[in-house]
């Protein structure tokens, strides 16, 4: 196993160990923190797919996180009120079943990413950052004005959605769902990275015109990466809403986009488990430093500064050494 493989394994086993310890020590709040970290990690794995592999600096991934959140919120809202989602041309009822909610979140976000990607990928560099940010703001203000689903106040879902065969209200079981999904997505991403598509995307990030001579359209490859990326982040959004049993426009805010990017940068851009390390560190700091001071973001900023200046590969880069060049 490579050094990075060991670091990744330690990170994932660490997650399980913390959750298992908390479960047996009767510390449900710690399990919730671990669940929160796993969900943030999943959202950031999504962004890392576009950012690390495709070189797409998206500052609008809150769009997909929010779409996931609202997919859960809207479906569960209708289910708890016994009202159909729509009646014409055919009736669609709400649902409290997680897999259906996830699928809805993924498909909706993939479609949104397709449209946003088609428009944003005409640009690059700072313009791409700005246009994705603009899309994020559009969704944010739309959600605020969407009074049917709570507008600015958001939507509360009284009972966590269900998963066949499990009791999702038990913290360790919900953690299990989130963690298994995280691992499944990590496996998928690692397969994609080593597939011809992933390799080409990697090469295209460094020398876009060179991959064309072997028949790859770099723009199309980036669009596919952006769509996959958005779908993963949406899955995390649906889980996050279920964790809080609440969804609000905040999920669409640019601060959320920024935080997802912070997870990636803290942990290591383009490193498979970078987002996992980043999200875990973020949640730990949020908890510990948040106890010390309301202004804990100052320390987070300082840490981010140090990592960007001195640990270019993030936490995973520091622990596992330099991987391939990623500029």
């Amino acid at each position: 196993m490579s050094r990075e493989g060991i670091v990744n394994a330690v990170l994932l086993v660490g997650f399980v160990a913390v959750a298992a310890w908390a479960h047996f020590a009767g510390e449900p709040f710690t399990i919730t923190l671990a669940t929160r970290a796993a969900i943030f990690a999943l959202a950031a794995v999504g962004l890392n797919f576009a950012l690390g592999l495709g070189g797409l600096v998206s500052l609008g991934h809150a769009v997909f996180f929010g779409i996931g959140g609202y997919a859960m919120g809207i479906l569960a809202f209708h289910a708890q009120n016994y009202t159909p989602l729509m009646e014409w041309p055919f009736a669609i009822p709400g649902t409290k079943v997680m897999p259906i909610i996830w699928l809805t979140a993924i498909v909706t976000a993939a479609l949104a990413a397709l449209v946003i990607g088609l428009l944003s990928l005409r640009t690059s560099g700072v313009y791409f950052i700005m246009i994705t940010l603009a899309f994020g703001q559009m969704f944010f203000y739309f959600a605020i004005s969407w009074s049917a689903y709570g507008g600015e106040d958001g939507l509360s879902i009284y009972i966590r959605n269900g998963f066949p065969g499990l009791n999702t209200l038990v913290p360790i079981q919900f953690f299990g769902i989130c963690f298994v999904l995280l691992c499944a997505v990590l496996w998928f991403v690692s397969r994609m990275e080593r597939s011809p598509f992933g390799l080409m995307l990697n090469a295209a990030r460094q020398v876009p015109h060179r991959v064309e001579t072997v028949g790859l359209d770099p723009q199309r490859a980036k669009l596919v990466a952006f769509v996959i990326s958005g779908a993963i982040t949406a899955l995390a959004g649906a889980l996050f809403a279920d964790l809080n049993r609440f969804v609000s426009p905040t999920m669409f805010s640019w601060q959320t986009s920024g935080e997802i990017m912070i997870f990636v940068i803290l942990g290591g851009v383009a490193r498979l488990c970078g987002p996992v390390a980043g999200a875990a560190l973020f949640v730990a700091l949020e908890h510990w430093l948040g106890d010390l001071s309301d202004y804990w973001h100052i320390y987070l900023g300082l840490l981010l500064l140090l990592i960007v200046l001195f640990l270019r590969g993030g936490i995973v880069g520091f622990l596992a050494g330099r991987a391939r060049a990623h500029d």
């Binding site: 390799l199 090469a203 020398v207 015109h209 991959v211 064309e212 001579t213 028949g215 770099p218 060049a325």
Partner: peptide
């Protein structure tokens, strides 16, 4: 360019130009 490549034109460019990091 990529469409021409897909039609069956394989180029060995001047200066080799391999994908260095792969």
């Amino acid at each position: 360019s990529h469409a021409a490549a897909r039609l069956g034109i394989g180029l060995v460019p001047e200066g080799r130009r391999c994908f260095r990091d792969l």
